[in-house]
């Protein structure tokens, strides 16, 4: 799986309350959630992300609550992939389960600038920064996580498994 897009860069410890504030959690509509993605950090984020972007962050991205609405809001706002130094564990699992690719890439938050154009190769765990002409190594995903992502998330993955039996 290859994913490309412009980078939007954030810092460390971005929590789920700023990714999607709790006042919006009463809606189940992903498009409605998407309008408020990252509102706590940058109210214009949804507008900037709509063409399709790669979100780059520092350490502990997605810390805080277990709300799956956080990766859903990002995905539907136009985030194609999240690259971070490392993730909070519940966010990481939630992102995989809803089919939003997440990749741990030590050093990424310093090496990438806002607006750099990136191409991510998920199988290889490789990030090409086309703006700077640099290649970065990310932590490769285990095979079963790659499979869930390729199926578009856990539900499709399970359906395929159950259907295949």
């Amino acid at each position: 799986m290859k994913i490309a897009g412009k980078a939007i860069v954030f810092g460390d410890d971005i929590n789920t309350d700023v990714i999607i504030p709790s006042k919006y959690l009463t809606t189940l509509d992903p498009k409605e959630l998407a309008k408020h993605a990252m509102e706590g950090m940058d109210p214009s984020f949804a507008d900037k992300a709509k063409e399709g972007i790669i979100l780059v962050a520092g350490k502990n991205f997605g810390c805080g609550s277990s709300r799956e609405q956080a990766p859903i809001a990002l995905k539907y706002a136009g985030v194609r992939c999240v690259l971070a130094e490392f993730f909070a564990r519940i966010f990481y699992r939630n992102a995989v389960n809803i089919g939003l690719p997440v990749l741990e890439a030590p050093g990424v938050s310093k090496a990438v600038n806002d607006g750099d154009f990136l191409t991510v190769n998920l199988e290889k765990g490789e990030i090409l920064n086309e703006t700077k002409g640099e290649v970065m190594k990310a932590v490769r995903l285990p095979e079963f996580i790659l499979e869930i992502l390729k199926d578009g998330g856990l539900i499709n993955h399970l359906k395929k498994k159950i259907g295949g039996k």
Binding site: R93, N94, L154
Partner: peptide, 22 residues
């Protein structure tokens, strides 16, 4: 499906938070 599920460790249980799809 709540991050503070870790509270259950007070009784010697392994409690952990997960998301909705999971």
């Amino acid at each position: 499906a709540d991050s503070h599920t870790c509270t259950y460790g007070a009784l010697g249980a392994f409690g952990t938070g997960i998301g909705s799809t999971e």
